[in-house]
Nucleic acid binder design. Sequence first.
RNA 1: GCGGGCGUGGCGAAACUGGUAGACGCAACGGACUUAAAAUUCGUAGGGCCGCAAGGCCCAUGGGGGUUCAAGUCCCCCCGCCCGCACCA
Length: 865
Amino acid sequence: MASERYNAPLREKHWQKVWEERQTFLTRDDDSRPKRYQLEMFPYPSGRVHMGHVRNYTLGDVMARYMRAKGFNVLHPMGWDAFGLPAENAAMERKVHPAKWTYENIATMKAQLKSMGLSIDWSREFATCDPSYYVHQQRLFLDFLEAGLAYRRTAKVNWDPVENSVLANEQVIDGRGWRSGAVVEQRDLTQWFFRITAYADQLLEALDGFAGRWPDFVCTSQRNWIGRSTGQLVSFALKGPKLPKKLASLEIFTTRPDTLFGASFMAISPEHPLAQHLAKKSVKLAAFIEECRKIGTTEEALARAEKKGFDTGVVAEHPLKPGETLPVFVANFILMDYGTGAIFGCPAHDQRDHDFARKYGRPIVPVVLPPGADAASFSVADEPYLGDGTLFNSQWLDGLSVEAAKDKVADWLKERGLGERKVNYRLRDWLISRQRYWGCPIPVIHCEACGIVPVPQKDLPVKLPEDATFDRPGNPLDHHPTWKFTTCPKCGADARRETDTMDTFVDSSWYPYRYCAPDAPTPTVKAAIDRWMPVDQYIGGKEHAVLHLLYARFFARGMKATGHGNVDEPFTAMFTQGIVVHETFRAESGEWLMPSEVRIEGEGAARKATHIASGKPVVIGAIEKMSKSRKNVVDPDDIIAHFGADTARLFIVSDSPPDRDIIWTEGGVAGAGRQVQRISRIIDEVVEKAPKPLARPGELGPEANELRKAAHKALAAVGQNIEGLRYNVAVAQIYEFLNTLQSLLGKSGQGLDFAIREAGELLVQMVGPMLPHLAEDCWARLGYNTLLADQPWPQAEAALLVDDQITIAVQVNGKRRDELTVARDATAGEIETAALGLESVVRALAGKPVKKVIVVPQRIVNVVG
RNA sequence: GCGGGCGUGGCGAAACUGGUAGACGCAACGGACUUAAAAUUCGUAGGGCCGCAAGGCCCAUGGGGGUUCAAGUCCCCCCGCCCGCACCA
C-alpha cells in the first residue's frame, strides 16, 4: 500500500487547534514537578517575523518540548518588546499612531509565531508598551530613585542626530548610533542615569562562575566593557601663578606607580578644571582647548586626531624627588571621563608618553631594567620598554620587581597622605533618558520649589498622551500642548512633568520576572519569582553580549536591593545563536533581487542565475545576513505555507550547529521537506506491520536485536544532544537510526515486528521536539488517542546501550592495520594474544621483534615493533 | 596593541576525558521503477599509487616543529578568518 503524501500545512493547522483547545501548553504554578524556565529573547514587533526569529524560537521550542517530556513543569512564555523608535518613524512617515502600528504588528507576528507550532503559554503574553506593564516599570524606577540607583545629572552624553535623542555608551558602536548608524556627537545635557557602576565589581566577579554555561565571548566582552584596572591615585603639588586653593594640587590615576621616578611631564584633559581655570587667563590656551573641542565632537575623530599638547607654564613638584618639577601640559588625548582626567607621563615605559616626550623634547629616563639587560647600555630611545623587570634609577625602589615597587610606592604615598590605591572602571553609568515619545514615561515632576518630586503611587501610571503629533523633529512629549503641565504633588504649585522616556532596554531588563506573574498588581510577586526565577536557559542573538545581557544582570541586582527580585543573576545559562545568511543576487543594473525572483541552474563553477521575469543574467553575490536592503530574505510564511512549519524547523536544526551562522538554501529546505515525508512514510509502514503495540516475544532474532539497539542508542544520544544544544548531532543520530529501521522494514525475523513497532513509537517520540506536528500526527496513526505532547520522554533500556561484542582497531607502530572483534569484557591479555595472532600484524611487523603492546580495552590495541 | 573564538572532503558538518578522522546530511555519479518527469529505491564515493581481482601501500584535519606507543584533540612558533575592547593612563 502506497502511503499518502503527508499534507503538512493542513495537518499542522489541525494539531495547532487541538493544542489550543486542550490548553496543552498552559503552565500552572501549582504543579509539583520541578520547574524549568525556558526563554528566548522576545521580539520587537517590527512588522513581520523573519528567519532570525524562526531560528531563535525553534531553538527554544525544541528545548521546551524536550524538557516538558522529561517531566519538568516548563514555563515557556512570549511577549513583545514593543516600545521603540521604529513605531515613531512609522508615525511620521505614514501618519499612523505608534500604538496602532505596534498592535497591528503584534497581531500579525503572533499569528505567524502560532503557525510555527511553538509550545508557548500564550496566557502570559504582554506588550511592554501597555500601561499595565509600564506602570510597574515606573514603580521600579521610583524605588530605584529612592535607593539611589537612579539619579539625574549633567554630563557629556552621546547625541544621535538622526534619532534626535541621546544614547547610552553601550549603544554607540564605533562612534555611531547602534540603530541609526549616524555619527554620534558629544553634548552637555542633564539626563537620567542608572547607577550600574555601583555593581561593577559584582557584575565582573560573577562572570567567573559562568564558565560552561555562558559563551566565553559574552563573558570576555562584558569583562572588557566593565574594564576594571587596579592602580594608584597620586597627588602632585602645583606651583604656578596664583592658583586657587582647590587647584593647588593635581591628582592623577596611574596603573604604573612603580615608574614614578621616570616621570618627565604631566598632562591634563582640556576639560579638566585646572585647564578651564588657566584658559581664563590665557588666550592661547583657550584657543588650544577650543581646537580640541572642535576635533572632539565625535568619539571617532577623537581617537584619530594627532596627539597635541600645550605647556601651561604651571609645574608640579615630584612627590618622590623633592626639588624636581614637571611641566603640566594640556593634552588632547587625555579623557576627562577616565580616572581623574590627569596623568603623569613616563616616556620610557609607555608608548603614548614616549611619542609625546619626543615631540615636546622631554627627557626619557628608563627605570625598569629588563631581565638580563645591562643597566649601563640599556636604551629606550627608540621605543619604550613595556615588560616586566627590575627597578633602577629609582633610589629606594632600586632592585625591586615591578609588583613590589608598586606596593612600596603605594605604602609610601599613603603614609604621607599623597595618594591611595584605587580601582578604576571603564564602565559608565547607564544613561536611560530618551527624548522620544514611544517609551515608558519617567514618572517624576519638576517643581521650582521642591526640585525633583516622584509621581505619587496613586497617580501611576503616568500614561503617554494619545493625541501626540509626529509632524516635526524633536520630542513629541515636549511639543504636546498640555501634557507636561501639572502641579507639584508636594506643594501644589505649577510644575512640569519629565518629558524624557526610558531607554527601551529598561523594558527588556526585567520582563522575565513579569512572566512569572503577568497580571499581578505589583511588579513582581515573591512566590511566583521564587517558583520560576532564574531563567534556566536563555537563547538569543550575539549582538546583546554587552547591551541587554549586561543591563538585565544589573537590573536583577537593583530589583533585589529594592525588594522586587530574588536573584543576582537572572539567566543561569545563556546560549547565543548564529545568524541566518543567504546568497545575494543582483541584476546587471546593480539592483538587488529577491531569491524568489531568480532561477538557478547548474552546479559549482557552472552555476548560473537568471532573472525569471526578464530572462536576463543575474550576478550571484556574497552570502550575507538576511536583510531587507540586500533583498536576500526568505519569508517564513512562504516556507510554512508550502512545506509546513516542521520542515522549516527541521532545516533550522539540522546540519548547522545552533551557535554558528546558518546558510539558508532552497535545496536544503527541500531536503528537510523530503525527510519529513520519509518519516511519515516509514511510520505508515510500521503501522501496516504492527497496528498496535505487540507483546514482547520470549526470543528475539538478530534483526530484532539490532533494531532495538539502534533505537535505544539513538534515544539516549538524542536526549543528551538536545540537552547540550547540539541539535544538529541529534538530528544526525535520528537519521542514522532511521536508516537502520528502514533497511529492516522489508525483512522478517524472530520478534522483528515487535521491534519495528517499538522503533516506530520511539522514532515518533524522538522527533517530537523538532517536528511536533508530524510527531503528533504519527502518534495518532499509531493508534493513540492521547497527545504526544503529553507523553513522557521514553527511558532507554540500559542493557541495549552496551554491546557484547565490540570492534577495536589494531595498530602497528601507531598505524591502523586491522580490526578485531572481541567480547566487551575481554582482558588486555586476551586482546594482545588475538592481535599478535593476526596475519596483518605479523606482516606489518616484517619480522621485527615486538617491543611493547599497548592495550586500551574497548578502544584500541597498538603493537610496537 | 590586549583579550576571546575559529581553521577538518565539492558543501554543511561529526569525532566523549589523546585511542579506527570524515558519522549524518546536501550536492554528484551509476543502476532500478516510469512512455517521460517528479517522487521513490539500490549502489559508489577524501586524495594518490600498485593490482585482472581479492587486496595492499602512501598522503591527508591552515603551515612548521615538539611531547606520546598513539595528536583534529596537548605544548611552542607562524599564516588566515570572525568577534569584543582600545589615545583607558
